[in-house]
Amino acid sequence: MAMLHIVNKSPFERNALKSCLAHALSGDAVLLIEDAVIGVVSGSTLVTELQQAMNGNAVKLYALSPDLAARGVKAERVLEGIQLVDYAGFVDLTVANEKTQSWL
């Protein structure tokens, strides 16, 4: 019964990612797209919360690589444990999870 959560707003400007992580259940996937991808940069203030979600709560985290590339964030700058997906990978995630929920 896993859910794919999709977040598209910058976590530095809005609380959508924070709220999403507080409601995601173990086994769920969280995909960051559009401005939300800037939250995955290693060294950002989001790191503790992202690591807690991945390690403490067994939530899988993904970021859309075309959105990272668009914003000049190279793969090596991405926090360890976060998986990068392209558009095809985005589609795969929607198929692999029974439901999706957007956090606007």
Binding site: A22, H23, L25, K99, Q101, L104
Partner: peptide
């Protein structure tokens, strides 16, 4: 509670976000 809210979300067939 937030925990109960997470469970309610997980029980849905369809969620519309606003």
């Amino acid at each position: 509670s937030r925990t109960e809210m997470a469970k309610i979300m997980a029980e849905q067939d369809v969620t519309f976000s606003f």
